[in-house]
Design a protein around this nucleic acid. Structure first.
Lengths: 348, 348
DNA sequence: TGTTAGCACTCACTTAACACGAGTGCTAAT
DNA sequence: ATTAGCACTCGTGTTAAGTGAGTGCTAACA
């Protein structure tokens, strides 16, 4: 029993129809709607084969067929015809991005909204992070009598700051001098580079400030940690409730619960860091509550080392080709903007 | 027809029972469960009066009674007995807060989670903002050949920064000098204080830097705007799906849609800026999709001028006294921590 | 005059029976 | 190899009857 041309046509018809209608597809429907030149009986025989091969399944004995996860997998890998993103949609995305250049968090928030609006699914976006944030500039600013502001700019132009509270009130010029020295020593360093040796060196060279130095070192560590922590934006969760597959309120609730856990979302996106585009279909998802969902993720690069991920979550019966075209378009647009930002060679 | 003691007892019984069971309450139930010493027939007569007065209503002719919004209003204002927060719960909240001191956004995120976990409703928290953020420190740091980092610390120790990209590459010492000057002039100023006069003054005094000054002034404006922009955190939306009143998926969807719009959330919370604690019941809400919800908001102060708001959203049939006790406990805890932060007199 | 027992009535909800129809699998004819 | 025909399955929709929780009203009672 081989997967001949006709079987493939039938499978494609089933998947297309099911994605459109969300109803199990029967042999008569296919015979009428898609002119394959064969009768419903023949289609029935082929469908029986397709079921045996695991590409489709029957919800119950007297119902039509629906695609299985394996069926969708075949569809996504070989059958699906790839769409290009429409001009108006591409323009819409471009506008959203352009309007928010310079504020990375708003940019991603709005991008997520736009993607949800275009696809009618749920969007997850992680902020770009380098696994190894390198210090480009480090500064200390006296804030008031008892606190000092630490500012770290990484090579990707991510800025993080931390207010350091200290019991002792140091002199302004001391703070300033320390800042200059730290900047000189730590430039180009990542978290891991700041090891015992470096710390020892700083302790020696800044012996005069031994009372406040520890405060500052812990602050640097915390700040660098925060710089490496992934921030995620979620949007369009309400679309889940529009899907007939989630009319069971229990299913919907457990999915919502999962989507509220940022950690889970991060792992979900992290998984696809290596691939440009990844599709996880139903049971391929490791998270239990997402066994009825498909997740399509795309990676966007800011620099070679700094990348974030966009994920679209929908029912397995999702419009794969449309989502993929939207994601591709979005990645292109966003990379253009972010690369300019990282290179720092464009006016705001 | 007056609201005598007995009517009040009956109303209270109806509300208590309905909050607990979510089922319309009949006269027999009250007669059996609450020992009021009167028969179900008498209760029926009183209930008829209560309905006429608008405190309760009948979903359909042969059903029991449920409280109306007016009924809940009376309950909240006069009948409800105020609870104190349990010791373990107070401890739990305190732990969550202590664990996240120093990072205001994580703190609020975790606080929102904790409140949702304790109440089983949805939590919205806005970050504390002063309506008039005043500049405490303003600095310029050269980042690389073409960009400069602007750092503004407000008097409440909120730090905001902005990367300014400029075509021209200014000298390090020029940047530094400008920064010092700006700091001197703008200290203590809020957005509104920086009017045409001030700008003219700066333009004159910093005439030497007329090419880059405009870049910097717009950046200052943008940054101060961002400092005044309210950030909101949302948590526990999935609890909505556990409420029987939202088993209608359409209702749930429209509520979810509303909750995804940050602007709406901000207005929702803003409304109660003046009051310490505010309860909006059902139709008292201006937003259409929240006509079946009650929103309890509490304001927490960081300093006299800087305050944020916590809101709990649930069905009108929510456990008002419990939510209020949790909110009060939370405000006390969070204010203790935040005031220390704002005063800057405690180690991190 | 306020309270209560009794009773007729209402109406949502449940259950069972039944018909309907979409869909299948199998068989036999082409 | 294809297809027409047919019996069979099973979810869905409809109808009818029964159930029970709840009400309002009336008349009797303290």
């Amino acid at each position: 029993m081989s997967l001949n041309e006709r079987k493939i046509q039938i499978l494609q018809a089933i998947i297309n129809d099911y994605i459109e209608t969300a109803e199990p597809v029967g042999s008569r429907t296919i015979a009428k709607k898609y002119n394959l030149g064969i009768s419903s009986a023949t289609i029935r025989n082929e469908m029986s084969d397709l079921e045996e091969m695991g590409f489709i399944l029957q919800p119950h004995a007297s119902a039509g067929r629906i695609p299985s996860d394996l069926g969708y997998r075949l569809y996504v890998d070989h059958l699906m015809q790839k769409k290009e993103l429409g001009a108006e949609e591409a323009q819409y995305l471009q506008n959203v991005i352009s309007a928010n250049v310079g504020q990375i968090d708003y940019l991603l928030e709005e991008t997520a909204k736009a993607l949800s609006a275009l696809t009618n699914y749920t969007t997850i976006i992680s902020e770009p992070v380098s696994r190894r944030a390198r210090i480009k500039q480090i500064r200390l600013l006296p804030l008031d009598a008892s606190s000092v502001l630490l500012v770290i700019a990484t090579e990707d132009n991510f800025i993080k700051n931390h207010v350091i509270q200290m019991g002792i009130a140091p002199q302004e010029n001391e703070i300033f001098e320390m800042g200059l020295h730290l900047n000189q020593v730590l430039q180009g360093y990542s978290t891991e580079d700041i090891d015992a040796n470096v710390i020892q060196r700083l302790k020696t060279e800044l012996y005069a400030y031994q009372e406040i130095l520890p405060h500052i070192l812990t602050a640097i560590e915390k700040t660098m940690c925060a710089a490496e922590k992934v921030q995620v934006h979620l949007s369009g969760t309400n679309n889940i409730l529009a899907c007939p597959e989630f009319s069971d309120i229990q299913k919907a609730k457990s999915l919502f619960q999962t989507l509220e856990e940022k950690d889970v979302l991060v792992t979900l996106l992290e998984g696809s860091r290596t691939n440009d585009l990844q599709v996880l279909i139903g049971s391929e998802n490791t998270v239990q509550s997402m066994k009825d969902c498909s997740v399509i993720t795309a990676t966007y690069k800011m620099s070679d080392d700094t990348r974030g991920t966009i994920g679209i979550v929908g029912p397995t019966r999702m419009d794969y080709s449309q989502v993929i075209s939207v994601l591709n378009g979005m990645v292109t647009s966003i990379e253009k903007v972010l690369k300019n930002l990282a290179d720092g060679n464009k006016n705001t």
